[in-house]
Amino acid sequence: MPRVAKPAVAAASNRLEVADWVHAGLLLLADQGIVGVRVEALARGLGVTKGSFYWHFKDREALLREMLQSWRRRATLSVIERLQGRATTPVSRLDSLLQLPFASPKAQDGASVELAIRLWARQDATARAVLEEIDMLRMGFICAIFEELGFGSDDAQARASLVYGFMREGATLPSKLHAETLTTLISGLLVNGAVPEPASA
């Protein structure tokens, strides 16, 4: 059965916001791929009629565009803004990035949505353009961290590629219980070229 979250407001009044439809669409995308994101399935899962959908969106394509923009904002732009505001040193920003795949139980959901968008982008030009922009923004942010640490452009790019690859796959790794140790080891290797000494007992 499709996983479509019913917001609390729906139970009370059946009046949904744009964000409710977008969230449900992303969950359905993660579960069934782009072919499964249909207006009928979403309305049924949310317990409303299709009329509620067309109150907010002209058509399915409008929903898909909003889903991409929502993912762009939440999975990249807001993350970069948050790290720039809270993590004051390049090493702290790097450590925070490496911990993102393990940061919360929702990380797995985020990884599933991203994988579905990457598959969608293989066959859709709009999705591909958004994905390419996101990859460029993320890589640029990570490269800047290593350049701030004193690495040249090529070395920064290579290290950023390793970090980005780890971040994309981290939520699917079986070693979540050792996430802190794993991220510390990776950070030490990439920044200092050595594995940090284990803490003494």
Rank of each mutant, 00 (worst) to 15 (best):
L64G: 05
G170Q: 04
L29P: 03
H178Y: 13
Q123M: 12
R3C: 06
R60D: 12
T88K: 15
T172S: 07
W21D: 09
S104Q: 09
A160V: 01
S96D: 15
D31T: 00
T49Q: 10
Q123W: 11
V9I: 15
E197D: 14
V39H: 04
R72M: 08
L131V: 07
P90N: 04
L46C: 08
A125V: 12
A179T: 04
L63S: 05
Q123Y: 09
L26T: 01
R118T: 13
K58R: 15
L94S: 06
E133H: 05
A127Y: 03
F53W: 03
P90E: 05
A41Y: 01
V48Q: 09
L137D: 14
L42H: 01
A111G: 06
H178A: 14
K6C: 08
Y164A: 11
A43N: 08
L63I: 11
R38H: 11
L64Y: 09
V195E: 12
R128I: 01
Q123K: 13
P101R: 05
L77A: 14
R15H: 14
G36S: 07
G85S: 14
T88N: 13
G110F: 09
K50P: 01
T184Y: 09
T88S: 14
H23S: 13
K106A: 15
G140S: 10
I142W: 09
V91G: 03
G170F: 02
Y54A: 10
S153R: 07
R168F: 00
V191H: 08
E180G: 03
D31N: 01
V37Y: 05
E66H: 03
P90R: 02
S161Y: 04
L97A: 05
L149T: 09
S175P: 00
L98W: 02
G150M: 10
F166S: 05
G110W: 10
V163K: 01
E61M: 12
A199D: 14
L26K: 02
E180D: 15
S78P: 00
K106C: 09
S161Q: 10
A62S: 14
K58V: 11
R60A: 13
M1G: 08
I134K: 00
M136E: 15
W120P: 11
R73P: 00
S153C: 03
E17Q: 13
F146V: 03
I142E: 13
V195Y: 12
D154R: 06
L137Q: 10
